[in-house]
Structure formats: structure tokens, C-alpha cells
Design a protein around this nucleic acid. Sequence first.
DNA 1: GCTGAAACACCTCACTT
DNA 2: AAGTGAGGTGTTTCAGC
Lengths: 147, 147
Amino acid sequence: MAVDDVDRRLLGLLQEDATQPYAVLGEAVGLSAGAAHERVRKLKASGVIRRTTIEVDPAALGRGVLAYVLLDADAWMGDKRAALEAIGAVEEAHVIAGPASVLVKVRAGTTEELQQTLRALHQVDGVTSTQTVVVLESFFERPPAVV
Amino acid sequence: MAVDDVDRRLLGLLQEDATQPYAVLGEAVGLSAGAAHERVRKLKASGVIRRTTIEVDPAALGRGVLAYVLLDADAWMGDKRAALEAIGAVEEAHVIAGPASVLVKVRAGTTEELQQTLRALHQVDGVTSTQTVVVLESFFERPPAVV
DNA sequence: GCTGAAACACCTCACTT
DNA sequence: AAGTGAGGTGTTTCAGC
């Protein structure tokens, strides 16, 4: 789908606050409420907007420990998506180029829970070793830029 | 704030689709619409719910290249938040324990743009070297677990 | 593809249990 | 703290340009 500059501005406004009335969105980009609504409808229909969701504070839910873990493997890891997805503390999993095979983002409640997650990662078929990078302070985590 | 099991179920439902009427949310957890609304209002007021937002498809917006970059530094990096935040392609920045100082998540449109971002990272005061991990395939990126 | 108005559904709030 | 019902508001739809 063709996404023009007005669409991108609408996406930015919706990222900040998806509860705004279409009249306000339209005014911000120089459109009527109806026209703004039509733009957003198409962005949703085409998949540019995947869903409307809430952003939660992980620390408030008892997940204040963040870490990234590099997984080394002695087998092809391309079919290990389900095994990684089954580990609740794993927030992201990526196949990577370079020394290791897979990079996962882990958010745990405590260092003990982080250790349990590392054990679970070791038990995934093919994984031979892990390197853990513990986050001391997060400067920011923000959504993808739309401009 | 005390977050009980019903709150967590509401958070999960809202993560999936924040446009659902409170009547539907309430029914799913065994509450009336008004009671469900009151729960959600408190979750927002206390900051457990940071905001209502949209989830966009980065690839549809021309940001199909994902990489993680480890930054080594010869100075304290704790005051470099603003410098990193100013680089639009940097989606996350974390101070880490271990060999490197800072870990950043970069989403670029092309490998050329990734290279430009690496140059910008090198120009941040204190950064002495970078190690880049390029993502070949993302298994998944999902929001923090609420349960 | 954009504009504008009318029907509809939802949210909100005060009151009750 | 949760349920109920009335009132106000935003959204949605549709015809017209």
C-alpha cells in the first residue's frame, strides 16, 4: 500500500494516543474527521496498522529485570520459533548473522527467574551455550519511527 | 498499585485489542461494563497502562532492516540518553553489564541507512567502537507478558 | 477521494446495593 | 467495590460533490 506523508503523520499521532477523536486527528493533518477516518481504515485494512493495543509498564507487573541472551547452536535454529515462544519471559527472538545463532530478549521478575529462563533456553534443542547481557538501565524503548 | 488476577486478564485482553467495548471486556472476566471500566481507569491512573497506541508494521513503512549494536566507550555513558534518542533509527537504548557499555536496537530501511546510523553512533561522545548484530529473520516481537 | 449530516453505539456518571 | 440506568459524546455510515 502507498503510505504518503499525511498517513505517516496520522500514524505518529495514533502512536502517541490512539484514543483521539478523528475530528482532532483530521484537524492536525488538515482533513475532515471523515477523511481522516477513511485514511486510518485503509491503514488498518492493509496491515500497516496491525492492531490497537495498550502499552504496559513491565516493572509495575513485576518484570523489572531485562536481559538479552545470545544463543549458540549446533543445528539449524530456523524451526525453533514455537519452542522459544513457549517461554513466557522471552519477548523477542531473532535469527542473527554473526558469531551466535539466535538473539532473544528476556524480561523476568527477578534474577532467579532470569536464571530459570536461561535454563529453559539451554533445554531448547540445538542450543549449546548462551551469553547473557544484563540491562542495568533502560534509556528508552520506543515504537518504530514512522517518518 | 495492587494488580490482581482480574486486572491481568483485562490487560491481556486490551493488549490483543484495545478497541473492545467495556461490556465485552467485563463479560470475559465476569464483571459488568461499569466495573470493568473502573478497573481499567485505575490501571491507567496508576501508570500500569502507560497509553493506548497502535502497533505498526515496520516493513510496510520501509524499515525492514533490524540490527542490534553493542557500543564500547571510554567514558561514562549514563548521560548519553538524549544523544541516542536523537538518532531516529535507534528504537531502544540500554546501559548494560558486561564487556560493552550500551546496547541499542536499530531499525533502518536499507543497509546503507544502517551504515549511516552506525556512523552517527560512532560520533556520540565516548563511543570507541561498535559491534553490530544483523537480524536475518525475526521469529516474533511481542509485548511484555502480563500473567 | 473528500465533505457534511444523521443514526447508532459507546462511554460516562450519579445513584444504589 | 460492583451493578444499574439515563444523558452526552464520538463514531460510523451514507449520499453528494
